[in-house]
Design a protein around this nucleic acid. Structure first.
Lengths: 155, 155
DNA sequence: CACAACAGTTGAGGTTGGCAACCATGTAGG
DNA sequence: CCTACATGGTTGCCAACCTCAACTGTTGTG
């Protein structure tokens, strides 16, 4: 893209490190916050994430990608959610290999409770309107540029 | 038509939800990115985080708090890091109950490699200088206001 | 010295991550 | 039609991690 002048690079370099450090700190806290919230509803972190990403019926394969984990893990996670009656496997009529995940009525209720808990005490609420809007824009751009699969930099 | 203050609140409310959603999305990607980076160095996610937070000698208790996990987990994590020679338990002479975690020479090298990998493909690099500075400010404020233990808001 | 408090460890039970093998279904070629 | 192959999901295995409770050493206090 655009190579930057060497002198100003240090400035940005320091800032970048700082932002990365804080981003990881924030990430850790958000993760802990989410885990605590999930625990209040007797959900494991992964179960909570699975519910979170299953707004519309979704094949297990897709969920695995969204959760950045192996497909085999989804089996167990969905098993436990299904045992609690929060989710259901529905065979896709178009492709009978596929099992679409459908959140049940109770599952939706639990998901709403979870989202409510997540809003409480969320750090981003400390920002004022302008900052929030700016942050939204940045996040949008940030998420666009990286599609989740950064170049693997193969050795 | 008497109430419905949503007209003013909705704006921020929607924005907040959007930001929260994107924040979690970004969190997930960063986590996946960190896990992949750690895997390239044959480190588990927790081992990587343990190294990351052990710049200066730190008692295991403190590390547990920084990693938001039970103290008993640290035992196993440090065990494996010690087996690889990346860390050492050093008994604190002032308080012989304490074992300070000291990163070895090799451990420091691995940590540097890890940090280098983390910088590669980090989504925040997509931002320009002004945005980066603004983000830094927001993160700082955000991290200040929440000390890691968010108080349950009554709203 | 008896006692509580603290740092760290151990053990049991359960959930997840990663890998390889497997079954069932869909798809392409002969 | 039949084989070969690709795909979605499952199972089994093993290592790592999480949570909780019980336990060993050490420190501080009375």
């Amino acid at each position: 893209m655009h190579h930057a002048p060497d002198v100003d690079l240090t400035e940005r370099e320091l800032l970048t490190r700082q932002v990365i450090r804080m981003t990881f700190e924030l990430t850790g806290r958000l993760r802990a916050h989410m885990d605590r919230s999930a625990a209040q509803l007797d959900l494991t972190p992964m179960q909570a994430r699975a519910l979170f990403h299953s707004g519309a019926p979704v094949p297990m394969r897709a969920l695995a990608e969204q959760l950045h984990c192996d497909a085999s893990n989804i089996t167990g996670i969905v098993d436990r959610l299904e045992e609690r009656g929060l989710m259901e496997r529905v065979v896709d009529p178009d492709d009978r290999r596929r099992r679409n995940l459908v959140v049940t009525e109770e599952g939706r209720a639990v998901t709403e409770q979870l989202k409510a808990l997540l809003r409480e005490g969320n750090p981003v609420l400390a920002l004022d309107d302008d900052e929030l809007a700016a942050l939204a824009g940045m996040l949008e751009r940030t998420l666009q540029t990286t599609d989740g699969t950064p170049q693997p930099t193969s050795t």
